[in-house]
């Protein structure tokens, strides 16, 4: 039986209640919107890209604890990193929450994001955990249309 405490870890609850980098970014030169039509989660990710590096990042929107905490911790994780690094972290994060990342596997890039490992026991919540990441990906690609989880 999946454990709720594994899903709702303290650090996740903390970020969901007090999300970091939760604001509109005045210096943003890229932005994208992400939407989960099933549950109505809706986020905007703002990016200040300088060449290949993420100089600043923020987000705003509404969603469940998992999606909000994921967005919040994502902004902390990728700020100051290159686009390639951010994509690599997304890849590892995706593997983590979909259960394709064994506990002894390569999670080096994830850092604190490893707290989301409990999501893999709750398949319907994978979209919550990855919504902000898909949105970040779209923002880096410069896509204009809203990213949908469907």
């Amino acid at each position: 039986m999946p454990d709720l405490r594994e899903l709702y870890q303290e650090v996740i609850l903390d970020h969901s209640k007090a999300p970091r980098n939760y604001r509109e970014l005045a210096t943003a030169n890229h932005r994208a919107e992400g939407y989960n039509p099933l549950c109505g989660d809706h986020f905007t990710v703002y990016l200040d890209l300088e060449g290949d590096s993420i100089r600043d990042i923020s987000f705003q929107g509404s969603g469940c604890a998992i999606s909000k905490a994921s967005a919040s911790m994502m902004t902390q994780r990728v700020k100051g990193k290159t686009r390639a690094e951010a994509e690599r972290v997304f890849d590892q994060f995706h593997k983590l929450v979909t259960g394709q990342s064994p506990a002894n596997g390569n999670r080096a890039e994830l850092g604190k994001l490893a707290v989301f490992s409990g999501v893999s026991e709750f398949p319907v919540r994978v979209k919550c955990a990855t919504l902000a990441w898909h949105t970040l990906h779209a923002a880096m690609q410069g896509k204009q249309e809203t990213v949908s989880t469907e």
């Binding site: 989660d41 469940c64 604890a65």
Partner: peptide, 13 residues
């Protein structure tokens, strides 16, 4: 201010 989705997951358990 708990999102209904989180309520649903916990009740499901």
């Amino acid at each position: 201010s708990i999102h209904p989705h989180d309520i649903g997951t916990i009740l499901d358990q």
